[in-house]
Design a protein around this nucleic acid. Structure first.
Length: 424
DNA sequence: GAGTTTGAAACT
DNA sequence: CAGTTTCAAACTC
């Protein structure tokens, strides 16, 4: 089974924080935020209305579009929004996203554009996917926020290109991006309390340094999700202190693998830092060339509810029965699925966990997609549809029809997702 | 803390 | 794609 991706949004809401004004530890899945924050230049950070607790790709919403990628570059895919509506604020024609995906769904709420923001229009978009979203922009279009990144005008072309390439190389998880009119770029991780800051100078040495000052396009990922501690001592194989390596270590460094630069690590002769941005970029490119999923989180989905997610590739354990932390599935506290190629697996739910003989892959634990989050999302969809019917002054019968139609869409998506995950 | 086991990732 | 190598983390003592 391929990586079980989903078009279902199981994340219930989005939070947007400006600067350091974010909670220290909150489960974003429980958050609802419909307020409008003021950005540094008085530009509002628009948040998405609560009806966004929706299943992506389900709502026939005027601001929701399925964007089909068109390959432009090995590192990026250009997306074209089909929306021609003036109501939709996606006024930027192109979206450069993660090349790994074949299809993304972009959902935007009605975003009012301040009258003075012809260039730096506030733009809020939530990528309802459990896939990495890599944002980039079009060369030569420096002033146009693309895929929710706003580039300060002070940057020269090369900076922008290099910087954004860095950005595209490191956002390896779903993010909600905000665009400010003042030049500060704030990318808010969908389920992390701390924003992921894009800055324009060399990276702060520690994430706690707070928001960067808007000079460096180096991506400072929030490492907490994938990297709780600094990466351990590692040295590039075959590389001595005197040697200039051709590329960064393409493996074994957790920071690098997670798409973040080393910070406060015990690395020896580390090149995974802003100082070696070019080499780092080359290494990233090289890695992606070999393996497009190289910077993809291993564990996807399952932000809330009983199902914690799934392993994108599946484990390959042979001797641990998938009951030790050697097993990535077990370590992530998830059960093995048909994606796994493990031998003698006992990491499945048969009620006893004592299965003496290996089950076939199809007997293994099926990934449930009907999590509480999904249920809630469906309810949100139905409610949004009812509200829309009300706004449009539809008759009760017509409103009922719209809601039922929406429910049918939701069910279709759920069934699709179930087949996608479980490969029955 | 040292040595062993294990499995992911890179490499061939 | 399969086998091998390398590595770091998990585990054991």
């Amino acid at each position: 089974m391929n990586s079980p991706t989903t078009e279902l949004n199981t994340t219930q809401s989005k939070q947007e924080y400006v600067g350091t004004d974010y909670p220290s530890s909150k489960d974003c899945s429980s958050e609802k935020d419909t307020t409008v924050h003021n950005g540094p230049a008085g530009t509002p950070f628009w948040t998405v209305p609560p009806s966004d607790a929706s299943l992506s790709g389900i709502l026939p919403h005027p601001h929701q579009h399925t964007i089909q990628p068109r390959v432009v570059d090995p590192l990026s895919v250009r997306f074209h929004c089909p929306c021609q509506s003036t109501q939709c604020q996606m006024t930027y024609p192109d979206y450069l996203l993660d090349h790994q995906a074949s299809q993304y769904h972009l959902f935007t709420g009605p975003v009012p554009v301040p009258p003075d923001s012809s260039h730096h229009s506030s733009f809020s978009a939530s990528w309802f996917i459990n896939e990495p979203v890599l944002c980039s922009m079009m060369p030569g279009d420096l002033h146009t926020p693309v895929a929710n990144i706003c580039v300060p005008q002070a940057l020269d072309h090369q900076q922008v290109q290099e910087g954004l390439t860095e950005v595209t190389s490191h956002i390896t998880q779903p993010v909600v991006c905000n665009v400010s009119g003042g030049g500060q770029v704030v990318v808010v991780n969908h389920c992390e309390p701390a924003p992921v800051f894009l800055t324009l100078e060399s990276a702060p040495t520690h994430r706690d340094d707070g928001p960067a000052q808007g000079k460096d396009m180096t991506m400072l990922g929030n490492p907490s999700q994938y990297h709780q501690t600094a990466c351990p001592l590692h040295e590039v194989r075959g590389q001595t202190a005197n040697m200039q390596p051709q590329a960064l270590p393409a493996r074994y460094c957790e920071c690098f693998a997670n798409g973040v630069m080393c910070s406060n690590c015990d690395c020896s002769n580390c090149h995974n830092n802003a100082e070696h941005a070019l080499k780092r970029h080359k290494a990233i490119k090289s890695c992606l060339g070999r393996n497009p999923d190289a910077f993809r989180p291993k564990i996807a989905g399952g932000k809330s509810g009983e199902v914690k997610g799934w392993h994108n590739k599946g484990c390959n354990c042979k001797r641990s029965s998938c009951l030790k932390n050697y097993c990535e599935c077990y370590e992530a506290n998830i059960m093995c699925t048909s994606s796994c190629k493990c031998v003698g697996c006992r990491n499945y739910d048969d009620g006893s966990k004592m299965g003496p003989k290996e089950k076939t892959v199809k007997d293994k634990w099926p990934v449930s997609v009907i999590t509480p989050a999904v249920v809630e999302a469906v309810c949100g969809c139905l409610l949004a549809q009812a509200e829309e019917a009300e706004r449009e002054d539809q008759s009760p019968a017509q409103a009922e029809h719209m809601v039922l139609d929406e429910f049918g869409h939701c069910l279709t998506q759920i069934v699709k997702a179930m087949f996608k995950y479980n490969t029955y």
